[in-house]
Simulated assay, not measured.
Amino acid sequence: ADGGFAGALVEWAHATLRTTLEIVRKPPGQKGFSVIPRRWAVERTLAWLTGYRRLARDYERHPATSEAFIRWASIATMTRRIARRAPATRPGRRHFDIAT
């Protein structure tokens, strides 16, 4: 977790979820922004999931329904990757011709 979550959240995760929450801090002497590899993977995964409209907002009433949609989105993402058989590429900027 981010350094902003240090404190009560660590104890709550240990007591309630019976899991260890690791707080990732900035390296000493770092100035400005720097990508932390492990956190980047998590942020990227969450960004991919929000690409699915139903997961972009909290519409679901029950957590089990949200979990099911997260699993569905993850399965869809993985099957697309397996079928593609090539590294992912980002689409370039779209340029629209506006007729005047």
Rank of each mutant, 00 (worst) to 15 (best):
28 P>Q: 09
93 R>P: 15
54 R>H: 09
79 T>K: 11
19 T>V: 10
68 A>P: 07
63 P>R: 09
58 D>V: 08
23 I>W: 02
1 A>M: 13
48 W>M: 01
43 E>D: 08
28 P>C: 05
74 S>C: 14
18 R>C: 09
41 A>T: 08
93 R>A: 12
60 E>S: 09
96 F>C: 05
75 I>N: 05
30 Q>F: 05
89 T>C: 07
57 R>D: 11
93 R>K: 11
73 A>D: 02
4 G>S: 09
38 R>A: 05
84 R>K: 15
17 L>C: 10
41 A>P: 01
25 R>Y: 00
73 A>H: 07
7 G>L: 02
28 P>I: 11
78 M>K: 00
37 P>H: 02
68 A>D: 01
56 A>I: 06
30 Q>A: 14
58 D>I: 05
85 R>Y: 03
86 A>K: 15
18 R>A: 10
91 P>K: 14
33 F>V: 10
99 A>T: 10
42 V>K: 01
20 T>P: 04
99 A>Q: 04
44 R>N: 00
15 A>L: 05
42 V>E: 00
100 T>Y: 00
33 F>Q: 06
24 V>K: 05
92 G>A: 12
37 P>M: 06
69 F>G: 02
100 T>M: 00
43 E>F: 09
51 G>A: 04
63 P>V: 15
93 R>T: 13
40 W>P: 01
57 R>K: 12
54 R>Q: 06
91 P>W: 08
61 R>G: 03
40 W>S: 02
95 H>W: 15
96 F>E: 05
89 T>K: 11
95 H>V: 13
6 A>P: 03
13 A>W: 02
49 L>E: 00
38 R>W: 03
68 A>N: 04
98 I>L: 11
34 S>M: 12
41 A>Q: 06
58 D>E: 14
40 W>K: 00
12 W>R: 12
33 F>D: 06
29 G>E: 03
19 T>R: 13
14 H>V: 02
41 A>S: 04
19 T>N: 01
14 H>K: 12
16 T>A: 08
15 A>E: 04
39 R>A: 00
13 A>E: 00
78 M>V: 14
11 E>N: 06
59 Y>R: 11
82 I>Y: 07
60 E>A: 12
69 F>N: 03
72 W>D: 06
84 R>M: 13
76 A>T: 14
80 R>P: 03
63 P>D: 14
